[in-house]
Amino acid sequence: MTTLRPLSLMVNGETLTCFAEPRETLADLLRRGLELTGTHTGCEMGVCGACLVMLDGAPVHACLLFAVQAEGSAIETIEGLTAKTAIADLQCAFHDRNALQCGFCTPGMLVTAQALLARNPQPSRAEIRDALSGNYCRCTGYEAIVDAIETVARRRAAGEVAAAFAEEPA
C-alpha cells in the first residue's frame, strides 16, 4: 500500500513521470504531488462533483480513481482547461451571472458544463439541471449556474467565441 509505484500520464498537455502510492487517489496526486489545487475534494466518495476532471476527454471523479489507474491517460484539470481557453466562455458567463459564491464547487461545475455542451449543444433548462445532478453547490441555489450554462449554449450556437478569460478586465 505504501510502496511508491512509477506512473506515466499526461496532465494538461504535459507528459509526466511521477511516483504514487497504490492507495493514492488521482485527486490526491493532482493536489499534493502536482500542486493542481483547483481540483477539490468534497466527499471523497464520488457524489459531490468537486473533484471532476477530464480523463481522455470525459469527466471522471478524481477521488474515485487511484492515481495508478490513470497510467497512460490524458488528464485535464481546471488549470489546463483555463490555460487553453477551452472554457473561457463558460467562465465569463459564470462570472457575469454570479454563478458561484465560495467557488469550491466551481471547477467541477465547469467540467460538467463543458461535457454537457459537448454531447448536447442546446440543452433545455431541465436537461441542464439533470446534468448537474452530481454537482453539489451549497451557496448559489443552482439557478444562476443553470442560467450561465444556458447562455453559453446559446452563444456557442450563434458562433460566438470568448476571449481568454484571464485577459478580461475585472
Binding site: I78, L100, F104, F165
Partner: peptide, 19 residues
C-alpha cells in the same frame, strides 16, 4: 456588478486552507 475576486475561483486559483 460582478465580483472581481470570483475570477480566480473560476480559474481554479482559489487558495483555500485545504490547499
Amino acid at each position: 456588478v460582478s465580483r472581481p475576486n470570483a475570477k480566480r475561483l473560476l480559474a481554479g486559483r482559489g487558495r483555500y486552507v485545504t490547499d
